[in-house]
Design a protein around this nucleic acid. Structure first.
Length: 474
RNA sequence: GGCACCGUGGCCGAGGAAUUAGGCAAAGGUCUGCAAAACCUUUUUACGCGGGUGUAAAUCCCGUCGGUGCCUCCA
């Protein structure tokens, strides 16, 4: 199996440290607002990665965190905790805000048919909340303090990046370049030893005096910095070095180097052997942002009558390392493609159609091709083109309902489009279809058309073929 | 200023030196009592522009124009 590794900037042969087990950690959402489709793309990417690994007989242990504390709106002095900002905006407590958006996230994950993380179980199920790992984070700071990698000043405990020579390896940029090149309006804490030093623990002083979320620590009451949770949770749940760590490309510069630094400094080994990053979704050629008003949520997609799985399919039609330019037209195209695939899957309920001579031996090579494309650095677009050929083949040759089911299951394992679990139409629909056919046989066209209209009302379209009527959901 | 990436037919997008994805849309046609949401066919000088190296370039190199991202919270 081949994967692009951001550490080496090359596509490499992926091997976990203890096969067949793969320990996979993914940066999850910060639950302070509705996730946009760019966020969802990164979670669909992780899901695809997991399915690809599993298709290669790896047994994946997956952990995803949920950031519900400590994520500041900026590193500057006026930076605010995102959760606190959300609470202020909505007039709720931070805990309510976190709970609300956690629920929103979990519902969205289900709608997109994302596999739940499976290597941790906590108060809210399979997702690891930062606030459920405060003790682990405090312990990590202790280690860093003992080893001289962290220092305390009035406002916070900082990680001293100058103490770790390997700092910033991933970003491929020199510290000096970064320091010089940063935009003028970025204000950093003047008391930090180095501009890149990042907070491990914030004290309840100054701008954080009224911070609602707070815990005791050996150094004083406060709350953890954002980067800390990933190192602590990964260490506590999966153990490091991880086989794979994922996140968005935006983390290459700051968040991931900081995670790496914490783990390397505290435990003396790297955090992960493979680092995979997904590219952004652009909207009309630009990054999504609230100020541009091009912030698209899953909710707005559903409100426009799109199937969340159409969004999933749209994501899969582009490579995860390419920027994807979202347009509603492209989403419509994906939705139409999805409907065609669903109609194809529904043929399994209508096995009386066409010939049945082609069997699993024809499907198998195509399914194998799909799997091999997916294992080639997750080439989902290429794999989907094979799927398209596969569905055409079946449509032409007729469908053997016995043999198509395993095929659909194989396809679902890769793409997660829920083709195998589709339900047959109910008994009354079947009855109407057969009554309509009887009416047609006796040339009672008005009754036949009435029944067809009735079926249409229930979302069922009828196509009369030489082999009899074929229904499809419309 | 520094670091990357990208410009592919109406739209979305793979590929990446000779065989040239796929989806959607569009056009024509077929079966049919009617119908299409069904089927078939077509869309085979598509690779930003200008040079260069190759027997051969969309694919490599140089330049150029344009776009995007990161360097600040960010998927």
């Amino acid at each position: 199996m081949k994967l692009y590794n951001a550490l080496t900037k090359k596509v490499e042969d992926f091997k976990p440290s203890v096969a067949p087990e793969v320990r996979l950690y993914s940066c999850g959402p910060t639950v302070y607002d509705y996730p946009h489709i760019g966020n969802w793309r990164s979670f669909v990417f992780v899901d695809t990665l997991r399915r690809a690994l599993e298709s290669n007989s790896f047994s994946v242990k997956h952990v995803m965190n949920i950031t519900d504390v400590g994520h500041l709106t900026s590193d500057a002095d006026e930076g605010q905790d995102k959760l606190e900002a959300g609470a202020e905006r909505e007039g709720k407590s931070v805990w309510d805000v976190a709970k609300h958006y956690t629920d929103v996230f979990i519902q969205g994950a289900q709608a997109l048919n994302l596999l739940s993380p499976n290597a941790y179980s906590g108060p809210i199920g399979p997702y690891a909340r930062a606030t459920d790992f405060i003790a682990e984070q405090v312990n990590l700071i202790k280690l860093l303090m003992d080893k001289g990698f962290a220092y305390k000043i009035k406002q916070a405990i900082y990680f001293d990046v100058s103490k770790l020579p390997s700092y910033g390896e991933l970003s491929g940029q020199k510290l000096t370049d970064k320091a010089v090149g940063a935009r003028e309006d970025v204000v950093t804490d003047a008391k930090k030893r180095n501009p890149q030093d990042f907070a491990l623990w914030f004290f309840r002083v100054g701008r954080f005096a009224d911070h609602e979320m707070r815990w005791p620590s050996p150094w004083g009451e406060g709350f953890p910095g954002w980067h800390l949770e990933c190192s602590a949770i990964a260490h506590a749940t999966l153990g490091d070095p991880l086989d794979i760590h994922t996140g968005g490309v935006d983390h290459i510069g700051t968040h991931h180097p900081n995670e790496m630094a914490q783990t390397e400094a505290a435990f003396g080994h790297r955090l992960a052997n493979f680092w995979l990053h997904n590219e952004f979704v652009l909207v009309d050629g630009q990054k999504m942002s609230k100020s541009l008003g091009n912030f698209i949520t899953l909710d707005s997609v559903v409100k426009k009558d799109y199937d969340p799985l159409a969004l999933r399919l749209l994501f899969l039609q582009a490579h995860y390392r390419s920027q994807l330019n979202f347009t509603w037209e492209a989403l419509s195209a994906a939705q139409n493609f999805l409907k065609r695939l669903q109609a194809w899957a529904d043929l399994k309920f209508q096995p009386n159609l066409g010939h049945k001579k082609k069997a699993a031996d024809v499907y198998k090579p195509l399914l194998d091709k799909i799997v091999s494309e997916i294992q080639d650095d997750l080439n989902t677009p290429q794999a989907l083109s094979e799927l398209s050929k596969l569905s055409e083949l079946s449509e032409h040759e007729g469908v053997d309902s016995e043999k198509i089911q395993p095929l659909l299951e194989g396809v679902d394992k890769i793409f997660g489009l829920k083709l195998a679990s589709r339900k047959d139409v109910n008994q009354s629909i079947k009855e109407w279809i057969s009554q309509r056919q009887k009416a047609r046989d006796s040339q009672d066209w008005s009754r036949a058309d009435k029944l067809r209209q009735q079926l249409m009302k229930h979302g069922i379209g009828i196509n009369d073929t030489p082999h009899g009527p074929v229904w499809s959901r419309i």
